[in-house]
Amino acid sequence: MNASLYAGRAGLRRGLIELRNSVTNVQDLFGAIFPNIILLVVMLFMRGAKVPGLNFSLGATVLPSVLGMGIAFGGMLTLAQYLMVEREDGTLLRAKAIPNGMTGYLVGKIVLASGWTLLGLLLQLIPGLIFFNQVGVNGVGGWLVLVAVIVVGLVATLPLGAILGSLFSNPRNMGLVMFPIMGLIGVSGIFYPITQLPVWLQWIGQIFPIYWLGLGMRSALLPGQLAAVEIGHSWRQPETLGMLLLWAVIGLVVAPMVLRRMARRESGSSVAARREKAMQRVG
């Protein structure tokens, strides 16, 4: 059997085992459920507000956008955090010491991050469909769009998470990753129609995948009349797919180069130095 294929299969098994262990861990499960409860409560408070110019609940509009945001968070932040933590504790170095170990390691982490992302989507989507009767999948076409946005969205964001995790060796630097992403959420039309923002902010939001993930989920779950508050008064589904595929290509080209560079720089001395700094901070 091809060595890379064998490593990929081993990584798949590892990822599924880690996912099973995580979802049966009370602390990990609470960490996944609690933020989703907070978001649902926020959207319920927004249920009485109306979309500007339409008699439609703003909370119902936000739900699909939050689902798109969840894909971005799961793909980028979850994988980045795994890489940072396990780079510091030496797990990544041990994977590097095994033939094709990095391939198996990354496949496992991608499976784990994808599993948690899909779980988060279900934790938001199922209660959301119950509480917001204006939200629903629009027929077979809606299901196809929903699945396509989820799959292509993960392919677009997971490589970006690997890049971010490779650039920062200290998990305490997550704030350096979080703050820019939170800023992008603010200009991506997640919690309020992007057309209400200044035009220059609309252009910034459209550069990054968070906006397109939110738009794609809205097009799958909201009635056509809501496209009136979008840019161009359209769901722009071809543009959504094209932009997400573009980010997927960029990530898949750049991520392996960044990961190889990061792996070459990993050594026992670098891991020991990071541990010593961590112990000094604890002390």
Rank of each mutant, 00 (worst) to 15 (best):
L106T: 05
V107Q: 05
V41R: 04
M46R: 12
R87A: 09
R87T: 11
L129N: 07
E86Q: 11
K96I: 09
N36F: 05
M76W: 14
T61C: 09
M69H: 10
I71S: 03
L118E: 11
L39S: 09
A72D: 00
G120S: 15
L129I: 10
S57A: 03
L58Y: 12
T103V: 14
N138E: 12
V140E: 11
L44A: 10
G115R: 09
L125P: 05
G128Y: 04
A113C: 06
S65V: 04
L79V: 03
G59P: 09
G128N: 00
I37A: 05
R87G: 12
M102A: 15
G70P: 07
A95H: 13
L122V: 13
L112P: 03
I130V: 15
A72N: 03
L77K: 13
T61M: 15
G75D: 01
Q134A: 10
G120V: 07
R87P: 05
G120Q: 15
P99K: 04
L125K: 07
L40K: 12
P99N: 02
L123E: 01
I110V: 12
G120D: 13
N133G: 10
T78F: 15
L63N: 03
L119E: 02
E86Y: 10
A72S: 02
V145D: 01
G104E: 08
D89L: 07
G115H: 07
L125Q: 07
T117V: 06
G90S: 06
L121V: 10
L121Q: 13
W143M: 07
E88T: 10
T117W: 04
G90Y: 04
N36L: 11
K96Y: 05
A113G: 06
G115K: 11
G141V: 05
W116R: 15
Q134M: 04
G115Q: 10
V51R: 07
E88K: 15
S65M: 09
W143Y: 14
F132K: 01
L58F: 07
A113N: 02
L125H: 09
L63R: 00
V145N: 08
I126W: 02
L119V: 10
A49F: 12
I71N: 01
I130Y: 12
K50L: 14
G75I: 03
R87M: 04
P64S: 07
G139I: 06
E86I: 10
L144P: 06
A60F: 06
N138L: 13
M84Q: 11
F45P: 09
V42G: 03
I37F: 11
F56G: 00
V145E: 11
V51E: 09
S57I: 03
R47P: 00
P99R: 02
I110S: 04
A80S: 10
M46T: 08
F45S: 13
Q81P: 03
I71K: 00
K96T: 07
T117Q: 05
L118F: 14
L123G: 00
G104M: 11
I38Y: 04
P64W: 02
G70C: 14
K50I: 13
T91H: 02
G68W: 06
L40T: 11
T61K: 13
L129W: 08
K50Q: 15
T103H: 12
A60Y: 11
A95L: 05
E86T: 06
G53F: 08
V51S: 06
L121N: 05
F132N: 00
L121I: 14
S57K: 04
M84W: 04
Q81E: 15
W116C: 12
E88Y: 08
V135Y: 00
G142Y: 04
F131T: 08
W143D: 09
L118Q: 12
